[in-house]
Amino acid sequence: MAEFKPKIVVFACNWCTYAALDLAGTSRMKYPANFRVIKVMCSGRVDPQFVLEAFKQGADGVIVAGCHPGDCHYVNGNMKTLRRMTMLKKMLEEMGIEKERFRLEWISAAEATKWVQVANEMVEQVKALGPLKPRLEVKE
């Protein structure tokens, strides 16, 4: 059987996390090729529906990431994300999606290293869990 290559969707805010990923590139850091980044202006734009849809489509994991508390380019969009994603986490667990498959992270534009660390951890965790069975469709 072919090696399991998890696919992980990342929702990254334009001002911090997306820039951190750019910095990881300009600094020629290395991390696994399992991530697909979708840019939003602020993590506050991330509708929980987006995350659910990603799992439904076959994502093995999802990361929502933005600026550190207090650093959001739009004052406090990330705090609203925090609230929403905390609720979403519970919901995901109820749906039978292991909590290791979903992460909310604060990664500043300078923290390319933190991104690489999060990326490595996430791939490890998800690999350990194995592919996500398309359980969601049953629930709907």
Binding site: V40, G44, R45, V46
Partner: peptide
């Protein structure tokens, strides 16, 4: 243009140009 309102609108009436629900989806 942060899009926080669009993410929260329960009826899909609020959309952020360039990051509309259907575009991100």
């Amino acid at each position: 243009g942060c899009g926080t309102c669009a993410a929260a609108c329960p009826s899909g009436a609020m959309q952020q140009s360039g990051f509309k629900d259907n575009q991100v989806m």
